[in-house]
Amino acid sequence: MSGHEFQSHFENSGSIDMDDTSTNIDETTMDELRQLAARYPQKRSALLPMLHLVQSVDGRVSPAGIQACADVLEISTAQVSGVATFYTMYKRRPAGKHHVGVCTTALCAVMGGDILLDRVQAKLGIGENETTPDGKISLERLECNAACDFAPVMMVNWEFMDHMTPAKADELLDKLLNDEEVHSTRGARITSWREAERVLAGFPDGLADEGPTAGDSSLVGLRIAQQRGWKAPTAEQAPVEQAGSEQASSGEETK
């Protein structure tokens, strides 16, 4: 290995790798899959969360995971595969410890996302949907992640990295590659892609209280309104009881 082979480049990269039958799914996982199924009026509704859980355990959508979902939901493996291959968050090959995304939908692309993606690919020596040979980082070209006022945007394990620049991207990747602590610009400290997948499956990790209430861009309008004394009308102007009219002005001064 020169160290620059693309580890997850397969000729048949469009389909789930059914040759690798390794799995970490055990009885605990099966119990959790059954728990998820029980949360819904009809158990098949749990399939998306269950596939997130499979990824958190196996690092991808594994053949054993497909079988486990099919068994719990009493549907065919083809039905599970059909769903698993429809959604972009389900990975058919092992993702990295950290999954990095660069948004290149129109607005982010124009604001610098294209340049960032080139830069990240060059630095990591991998292309889209590939994983570094050491398994540390996988890379994805993202479609709009609903953070356009923070453009250009990158994501790590589905946490926001706002207002990115090439220098910030370099620093971010260096820290991830060196296992240093990284924080989202408006989220929690970065854990790992697998741990993130477990939360998405519906098993909280207790980090909800980390990070700020909102990022800077989210607050631009509110700050201007506060400076200029602009408020929504009070309830007094309506012919019903006053409730919540004090809402807009309390709180802020008290912290």
Binding site: T213, A248, E252
Partner: peptide, 13 residues
């Protein structure tokens, strides 16, 4: 007023 924070009113808290 030009801006009327209702849903966003507590985002700075």
């Amino acid at each position: 007023d030009t801006l009327t924070p209702v849903l966003t009113a507590n985002w700075g808290d």
